[in-house]
Design a protein around this nucleic acid. Structure first.
Lengths: 140, 140
DNA sequence: AATGAATTTTAGAATAATTCTAAACGGATA
DNA sequence: TATCCGTTTAGAATTATTCTAAAATTCATT
Protein backbone atom coordinates (compact mmCIF):
# COMPACT_ATOMS: atom_id res chain seq x y z
CA UNK A 1 0.00 0.00 0.00
CA UNK A 2 1.14 3.54 -0.67
CA UNK A 3 1.49 5.93 2.21
CA UNK A 4 -1.67 7.93 3.03
CA UNK A 5 -0.22 11.26 1.99
CA UNK A 6 0.33 10.00 -1.56
CA UNK A 7 -3.27 11.01 -2.29
CA UNK A 8 -4.35 14.63 -2.48
CA UNK A 9 -7.30 14.47 -0.11
CA UNK A 10 -5.28 12.82 2.61
CA UNK A 11 -3.48 16.04 3.33
CA UNK A 12 -6.75 17.63 4.27
CA UNK A 13 -7.84 14.75 6.45
CA UNK A 14 -4.40 14.53 7.97
CA UNK A 15 -4.30 18.24 8.69
CA UNK A 16 -7.71 18.14 10.26
CA UNK A 17 -6.72 15.37 12.61
CA UNK A 18 -3.41 17.01 13.43
CA UNK A 19 -5.05 20.33 14.19
CA UNK A 20 -7.57 18.58 16.37
CA UNK A 21 -4.82 16.85 18.29
CA UNK A 22 -5.88 13.40 17.20
CA UNK A 23 -3.38 10.80 16.11
CA UNK A 24 -3.89 10.18 12.43
CA UNK A 25 -4.36 6.45 12.50
CA UNK A 26 -5.30 4.53 9.40
CA UNK A 27 -8.91 4.18 10.59
CA UNK A 28 -9.37 7.81 11.57
CA UNK A 29 -7.86 8.97 8.31
CA UNK A 30 -10.18 6.76 6.32
CA UNK A 31 -13.21 7.98 8.24
CA UNK A 32 -12.15 11.61 8.00
CA UNK A 33 -11.73 11.26 4.26
CA UNK A 34 -15.21 9.85 3.91
CA UNK A 35 -16.75 12.42 6.20
CA UNK A 36 -15.06 15.53 4.91
CA UNK A 37 -14.59 14.70 1.24
CA UNK A 38 -17.50 16.77 0.09
CA UNK A 39 -20.01 19.16 1.56
CA UNK A 40 -22.01 18.85 4.73
CA UNK A 41 -23.08 15.35 5.67
CA UNK A 42 -25.16 13.61 8.30
CA UNK A 43 -24.21 10.11 9.34
CA UNK A 44 -25.17 7.56 11.90
CA UNK A 45 -22.51 5.25 13.35
CA UNK A 46 -24.04 2.39 11.44
CA UNK A 47 -24.27 4.24 8.12
CA UNK A 48 -20.68 5.40 8.35
CA UNK A 49 -19.52 1.91 9.24
CA UNK A 50 -21.35 0.45 6.26
CA UNK A 51 -20.00 3.11 3.95
CA UNK A 52 -16.44 2.54 5.13
CA UNK A 53 -16.78 -1.20 4.78
CA UNK A 54 -18.09 -0.67 1.27
CA UNK A 55 -14.88 1.16 0.50
CA UNK A 56 -12.84 -1.74 1.79
CA UNK A 57 -11.74 0.07 4.90
CA UNK A 58 -11.03 -2.50 7.54
CA UNK A 59 -12.29 -1.40 10.88
CA UNK A 60 -14.70 -2.37 13.58
CA UNK A 61 -17.94 -0.74 14.55
CA UNK A 62 -16.50 0.13 17.96
CA UNK A 63 -13.82 2.13 16.21
CA UNK A 64 -16.46 4.09 14.34
CA UNK A 65 -18.15 4.93 17.63
CA UNK A 66 -14.82 5.90 19.14
CA UNK A 67 -13.88 8.06 16.19
CA UNK A 68 -17.24 9.81 16.03
CA UNK A 69 -17.03 10.66 19.70
CA UNK A 70 -13.40 11.74 19.49
CA UNK A 71 -14.14 13.88 16.45
CA UNK A 72 -17.10 15.43 18.22
CA UNK A 73 -15.09 16.20 21.36
CA UNK A 74 -12.47 17.92 19.27
CA UNK A 75 -14.96 19.98 17.37
CA UNK A 76 -14.72 18.19 14.04
CA UNK A 77 -18.30 16.99 14.24
CA UNK A 78 -21.47 17.94 15.96
CA UNK A 79 -23.87 15.44 17.43
CA UNK A 80 -27.59 15.80 16.82
CA UNK A 81 -30.35 14.03 18.69
CA UNK A 82 -33.55 13.80 16.84
CA UNK A 83 -34.98 10.47 17.61
CA UNK A 84 -34.59 8.28 20.60
CA UNK A 85 -32.47 5.32 19.75
CA UNK A 86 -30.50 6.81 16.91
CA UNK A 87 -27.69 9.31 16.95
CA UNK A 88 -26.64 11.50 14.09
CA UNK A 89 -23.37 13.27 13.52
CA UNK A 90 -23.12 16.33 11.35
CA UNK A 91 -19.95 17.42 9.57
CA UNK A 92 -21.24 20.96 9.61
CA UNK A 93 -20.13 22.29 12.98
CA UNK A 94 -21.08 25.88 12.38
CA UNK A 95 -24.27 27.15 13.92
CA UNK A 96 -27.27 26.08 11.89
CA UNK A 97 -30.55 24.24 12.12
CA UNK A 98 -32.27 21.24 10.57
CA UNK A 99 -35.12 19.90 8.58
CA UNK A 100 -36.01 16.41 9.69
CA UNK A 101 -37.94 14.20 7.28
CA UNK A 102 -39.90 12.00 9.63
CA UNK A 103 -40.79 9.54 6.91
CA UNK A 104 -37.24 8.75 5.91
CA UNK A 105 -35.22 9.75 8.93
CA UNK A 106 -33.10 12.05 6.79
CA UNK A 107 -31.68 15.35 7.96
CA UNK A 108 -31.04 18.46 5.94
CA UNK A 109 -29.22 21.59 7.00
CA UNK A 110 -31.10 24.83 7.37
CA UNK A 111 -29.00 27.96 7.15
CA UNK A 112 -28.71 29.86 10.39
CA UNK A 113 -30.11 33.06 8.93
CA UNK A 114 -33.20 31.45 7.45
CA UNK A 115 -34.51 31.01 10.98
CA UNK A 116 -34.72 34.29 12.80
CA UNK A 117 -35.14 34.05 16.53
CA UNK A 118 -35.81 37.48 17.93
CA UNK A 119 -36.33 36.56 21.52
CA UNK A 120 -35.22 33.84 23.86
CA UNK A 121 -35.91 33.37 27.57
CA UNK A 122 -33.09 34.05 30.00
CA UNK A 123 -31.19 30.99 31.10
CA UNK A 124 -32.18 29.83 34.59
CA UNK A 125 -29.88 30.95 37.39
CA UNK A 126 -26.56 29.18 37.37
CA UNK A 127 -26.95 27.99 33.81
CA UNK A 128 -25.77 29.25 30.46
CA UNK A 129 -27.26 28.70 27.06
CA UNK A 130 -24.91 26.30 25.37
CA UNK A 131 -26.76 25.96 22.12
CA UNK A 132 -30.18 26.49 20.61
CA UNK A 133 -31.34 23.68 18.37
CA UNK A 134 -34.20 24.23 16.00
CA UNK A 135 -35.60 21.14 14.36
CA UNK A 136 -38.24 21.62 11.72
CA UNK A 137 -40.11 18.35 11.51
CA UNK A 138 -41.52 17.54 8.11
CA UNK A 139 -44.32 15.27 7.06
CA UNK A 140 -46.35 14.99 3.91
CA UNK B 1 -61.52 -2.17 46.06
CA UNK B 2 -63.85 0.68 45.27
CA UNK B 3 -64.68 1.41 41.67
CA UNK B 4 -62.33 3.85 39.98
CA UNK B 5 -64.87 6.63 39.68
CA UNK B 6 -65.33 6.71 43.43
CA UNK B 7 -62.35 9.08 43.57
CA UNK B 8 -62.58 12.59 42.22
CA UNK B 9 -59.51 12.54 40.00
CA UNK B 10 -60.56 9.32 38.34
CA UNK B 11 -63.32 11.07 36.52
CA UNK B 12 -60.78 13.28 34.86
CA UNK B 13 -58.51 10.40 33.90
CA UNK B 14 -61.48 8.37 32.78
CA UNK B 15 -62.84 11.21 30.70
CA UNK B 16 -59.50 11.79 29.11
CA UNK B 17 -59.20 8.19 28.06
CA UNK B 18 -62.78 8.05 26.84
CA UNK B 19 -62.39 11.17 24.79
CA UNK B 20 -59.21 9.82 23.31
CA UNK B 21 -60.97 6.61 22.37
CA UNK B 22 -58.83 4.48 24.64
CA UNK B 23 -60.30 1.77 26.78
CA UNK B 24 -59.97 2.82 30.38
CA UNK B 25 -58.20 -0.20 31.72
CA UNK B 26 -56.92 -0.34 35.28
CA UNK B 27 -53.33 0.26 34.09
CA UNK B 28 -54.13 3.12 31.77
CA UNK B 29 -56.24 4.79 34.41
CA UNK B 30 -53.48 4.51 36.96
CA UNK B 31 -50.92 5.94 34.56
CA UNK B 32 -53.24 8.72 33.43
CA UNK B 33 -53.85 9.68 37.06
CA UNK B 34 -50.15 9.88 37.72
CA UNK B 35 -49.44 11.78 34.54
CA UNK B 36 -52.25 14.28 34.63
CA UNK B 37 -52.73 14.78 38.35
CA UNK B 38 -50.86 18.05 38.48
CA UNK B 39 -49.26 20.43 36.06
CA UNK B 40 -47.00 19.73 33.14
CA UNK B 41 -44.64 16.81 33.53
CA UNK B 42 -41.85 15.10 31.66
CA UNK B 43 -41.38 11.38 32.10
CA UNK B 44 -39.32 8.59 30.66
CA UNK B 45 -40.82 5.11 30.37
CA UNK B 46 -38.55 3.96 33.14
CA UNK B 47 -39.32 6.87 35.46
CA UNK B 48 -43.04 6.44 35.03
CA UNK B 49 -42.79 2.71 35.62
CA UNK B 50 -40.83 3.28 38.81
CA UNK B 51 -43.26 5.90 40.00
CA UNK B 52 -46.25 3.67 39.33
CA UNK B 53 -44.63 0.74 41.08
CA UNK B 54 -43.92 3.02 44.03
CA UNK B 55 -47.64 3.66 44.22
CA UNK B 56 -48.37 -0.06 44.26
CA UNK B 57 -49.75 -0.07 40.76
CA UNK B 58 -49.25 -3.52 39.35
CA UNK B 59 -48.16 -3.37 35.78
CA UNK B 60 -45.32 -4.33 33.53
CA UNK B 61 -42.80 -2.11 31.82
CA UNK B 62 -44.13 -3.20 28.44
CA UNK B 63 -47.51 -1.82 29.42
CA UNK B 64 -45.94 1.52 30.25
CA UNK B 65 -44.37 1.61 26.80
CA UNK B 66 -47.68 0.64 25.23
CA UNK B 67 -49.59 3.24 27.18
CA UNK B 68 -47.12 6.03 26.46
CA UNK B 69 -47.28 5.30 22.77
CA UNK B 70 -51.05 4.95 22.75
CA UNK B 71 -51.43 8.20 24.68
CA UNK B 72 -49.08 9.93 22.29
CA UNK B 73 -50.92 8.67 19.21
CA UNK B 74 -54.18 9.94 20.63
CA UNK B 75 -52.80 13.34 21.47
CA UNK B 76 -52.69 12.98 25.23
CA UNK B 77 -48.90 13.21 25.30
CA UNK B 78 -46.14 14.54 23.15
CA UNK B 79 -42.88 12.74 22.60
CA UNK B 80 -39.64 14.65 22.80
CA UNK B 81 -36.30 13.43 21.56
CA UNK B 82 -33.37 15.11 23.12
CA UNK B 83 -30.76 12.52 23.59
CA UNK B 84 -30.10 9.40 21.68
CA UNK B 85 -31.07 6.40 23.70
CA UNK B 86 -33.66 8.00 25.92
CA UNK B 87 -37.18 9.12 25.16
CA UNK B 88 -39.19 11.67 27.03
CA UNK B 89 -42.92 12.19 27.08
CA UNK B 90 -44.45 15.51 27.92
CA UNK B 91 -47.93 15.94 29.34
CA UNK B 92 -48.03 19.41 27.88
CA UNK B 93 -49.25 18.88 24.36
CA UNK B 94 -49.72 22.51 23.50
CA UNK B 95 -47.11 24.21 21.39
CA UNK B 96 -44.11 25.14 23.47
CA UNK B 97 -40.36 24.68 23.73
CA UNK B 98 -37.79 23.33 26.18
CA UNK B 99 -34.81 23.99 28.31
CA UNK B 100 -32.63 20.94 28.53
CA UNK B 101 -30.22 20.65 31.45
CA UNK B 102 -27.41 18.61 29.97
CA UNK B 103 -25.91 17.85 33.33
CA UNK B 104 -28.98 16.29 34.84
CA UNK B 105 -30.99 15.25 31.81
CA UNK B 106 -33.98 17.24 33.07
CA UNK B 107 -36.40 19.09 30.85
CA UNK B 108 -38.29 22.26 31.59
CA UNK B 109 -41.04 23.87 29.56
CA UNK B 110 -40.44 27.17 27.87
CA UNK B 111 -43.54 29.13 27.04
CA UNK B 112 -44.26 29.45 23.36
CA UNK B 113 -44.25 33.22 23.42
CA UNK B 114 -40.90 33.53 25.15
CA UNK B 115 -39.25 32.30 21.97
CA UNK B 116 -40.10 34.50 19.05
CA UNK B 117 -39.33 33.04 15.66
CA UNK B 118 -39.87 35.68 13.03
CA UNK B 119 -38.79 33.72 10.01
CA UNK B 120 -38.66 30.12 8.97
CA UNK B 121 -37.61 28.57 5.66
CA UNK B 122 -40.28 27.19 3.37
CA UNK B 123 -40.84 23.48 3.65
CA UNK B 124 -39.24 21.55 0.78
CA UNK B 125 -41.59 20.62 -2.06
CA UNK B 126 -44.02 17.90 -1.11
CA UNK B 127 -43.49 18.37 2.58
CA UNK B 128 -45.29 20.26 5.29
CA UNK B 129 -43.95 21.62 8.54
CA UNK B 130 -45.38 19.36 11.17
CA UNK B 131 -43.76 20.99 14.15
CA UNK B 132 -40.89 23.24 15.08
CA UNK B 133 -38.94 22.13 18.12
CA UNK B 134 -36.67 24.54 19.89
CA UNK B 135 -34.36 23.04 22.47
CA UNK B 136 -32.31 25.42 24.54
CA UNK B 137 -29.39 23.40 25.82
CA UNK B 138 -28.06 24.50 29.16
CA UNK B 139 -24.69 23.98 30.78
CA UNK B 140 -22.96 25.68 33.66
C1' DA C 1 16.04 0.30 12.04
C1' DA C 2 15.16 -1.14 16.95
C1' DT C 3 13.07 0.09 21.53
C1' DG C 4 9.57 1.41 24.45
C1' DA C 5 5.71 4.14 26.25
C1' DA C 6 1.32 5.68 25.29
C1' DT C 7 -2.57 5.53 22.45
C1' DT C 8 -5.71 3.13 19.51
C1' DT C 9 -8.07 -0.76 17.64
C1' DT C 10 -10.49 -4.89 18.04
C1' DA C 11 -13.73 -8.84 18.88
C1' DG C 12 -16.72 -10.09 21.72
C1' DA C 13 -19.14 -9.58 26.01
C1' DA C 14 -22.00 -6.55 28.60
C1' DT C 15 -25.50 -3.15 29.19
C1' DA C 16 -29.49 -0.44 28.12
C1' DA C 17 -33.61 0.81 25.79
C1' DT C 18 -37.24 -0.81 23.32
C1' DT C 19 -40.12 -4.05 20.77
C1' DC C 20 -42.02 -8.51 19.95
C1' DT C 21 -44.60 -12.81 20.94
C1' DA C 22 -48.15 -15.61 22.19
C1' DA C 23 -50.89 -16.73 25.97
C1' DA C 24 -53.93 -15.05 29.60
C1' DC C 25 -56.96 -11.52 30.94
C1' DG C 26 -60.56 -8.01 31.18
C1' DG C 27 -63.88 -4.60 29.42
C1' DA C 28 -67.77 -3.82 26.36
C1' DT C 29 -71.78 -5.34 24.32
C1' DA C 30 -75.57 -8.30 23.28
C1' DT D 1 -73.69 -14.40 31.27
C1' DA D 2 -71.40 -15.41 26.91
C1' DT D 3 -68.68 -13.74 23.48
C1' DC D 4 -65.52 -10.84 21.10
C1' DC D 5 -61.72 -8.26 20.69
C1' DG D 6 -58.54 -5.12 22.67
C1' DT D 7 -55.05 -5.13 26.42
C1' DT D 8 -51.67 -6.88 29.51
C1' DT D 9 -47.98 -9.73 30.65
C1' DA D 10 -43.44 -12.19 31.25
C1' DG D 11 -39.90 -13.19 29.02
C1' DA D 12 -37.41 -13.54 24.76
C1' DA D 13 -35.63 -10.93 21.01
C1' DT D 14 -33.78 -6.95 18.90
C1' DT D 15 -31.19 -2.79 18.49
C1' DA D 16 -28.00 0.72 19.84
C1' DT D 17 -24.18 1.62 22.41
C1' DT D 18 -20.42 0.96 25.73
C1' DC D 19 -17.04 -1.80 28.00
C1' DT D 20 -13.03 -4.89 28.47
C1' DA D 21 -8.68 -6.64 28.06
C1' DA D 22 -5.51 -8.07 24.71
C1' DA D 23 -3.14 -7.10 20.41
C1' DA D 24 -1.65 -3.71 17.28
C1' DT D 25 -0.07 0.76 15.97
C1' DT D 26 1.91 5.28 16.40
C1' DC D 27 5.42 8.26 17.73
C1' DA D 28 9.42 9.71 20.05
C1' DT D 29 13.83 8.27 21.22
C1' DT D 30 18.01 5.59 20.51
Amino acid sequence: MSSPSAHPKDATALERLRKAGLRPTRQRLALAKILFANGSRHVTPESLYTEAKGKRVNLSLATVYNALHDFTERGLLREISIEAGRSYFDTNTSEHHHFYYERTGKLQDVALDSVRITSLPDAPAGEKVKRVDVIIRLAR
